[in-house]
Design a protein around this nucleic acid. Sequence first.
DNA 1: TATTTGATAGTTTTGTTTAAAAAGTCAGGA
DNA 2: TCCTGACTTTTTAAACAAAACTATCAAATA
Lengths: 205, 205
Amino acid sequence: MSAANEQQDLKREKIIEASYQRFLHYGYSKTTMNEIAGDLSMSKALLYYYFPDKSELYMAVMRKLANDYLKQLEDKAGHFTDLREAFLFQVNTHHDFIVNNYNFFDFFRLNEQNLPDTIWETVSQIRSAEITLLADVIQTRVEKNNLKPIAPPLEIVEVFLDALHGIKVGGVLQSKKLNFPHREDLDEIHKKRLLLIDVFVKGLN
Amino acid sequence: MSAANEQQDLKREKIIEASYQRFLHYGYSKTTMNEIAGDLSMSKALLYYYFPDKSELYMAVMRKLANDYLKQLEDKAGHFTDLREAFLFQVNTHHDFIVNNYNFFDFFRLNEQNLPDTIWETVSQIRSAEITLLADVIQTRVEKNNLKPIAPPLEIVEVFLDALHGIKVGGVLQSKKLNFPHREDLDEIHKKRLLLIDVFVKGLN
DNA sequence: TATTTGATAGTTTTGTTTAAAAAGTCAGGA
DNA sequence: TCCTGACTTTTTAAACAAAACTATCAAATA
């Protein structure tokens, strides 16, 4: 890689960082390319030199966040002996990820349907990492203890992750409100997820 | 009750039945009051004599469906000894309810947010019945076997129902599409829910 | 008096236009 | 290769009109 390319990448990082701050505070639709350019004391046109369009810029920020999250998961992959600990780690890490970047995901709430297709690559990448992490733990535990599993590890983990996502708050108001939970509900949801882990882990023994 | 009132109620039933057919086939927004009146060979104005407005008429149909569903649950309430059987019954009954009336719920998909407030009474009534049914089984089982439960039965059931609702299909496309699952996915979802029951029931022993 | 209707009033939805704002492009300069 | 000012195109939002539908009511019927 040439020095010029390194410089480019560095600048891209700068842009991504500035964009991240804007997106985090004001959300996607309330952030303009002019504002981002202003924060960096550069022209809007230069942003388009480094990124093809606004949604690609957003995606770049998103990918960076996702990579940080993935690294956290992969660092621990294969190092779990206890099923409960693996589940707890996944749920806690996910919780922190959402809490720390809550406003950034305004984008999802706003568009809800018909989001840019490229986003699903990243989303499914995350889901794959989560599935792999947990399925591996189940798999090795099955082999070690010579257990007959209740179902293929992959299916179990899929159901588990779906179940996690299903946890909401407020019996009646549940589906009334948006898909995306309110910030103030995140902790209660987290608590309920811990209970789900309790039951689930016990059920897999 | 006077004969006149009985006649009125009978007519209301007729209207509800005709409306149900329209709503089931075409959904709420594609059904006009004129069409319902036409089916019954009466004037539109007469519909407004029996029901205050269109959404109240829809709600009346909805309440009828809900009552049928509730009766199914209440007929069995207190008659379960086995936890698994209770869970299976709930999931299967719910599945049939949705499958049989799928198009009727177009209303929910269309409006998604901001539905008429009166609807949540019925929805929460159903949820209460489901919670009661299952929590009772857990409660009596705990008492009989003198077990120390993992958490209060009510909390367990809430998490279970949330988890059930979280079950979706298609790893990536999951949240991409609408809240309401596609008709062709209902069977796969149902199968996954059965697996969730397996794990859950085992986890509660 | 209870039930029914045609005519009509009121509201929501749909489509169109227009202006402002933001996204996105490009020729040319350093 | 990196960068900008000026420009064009696209998106958004407001205002308006026509159409479709909901909802009302005075009068007719039984």
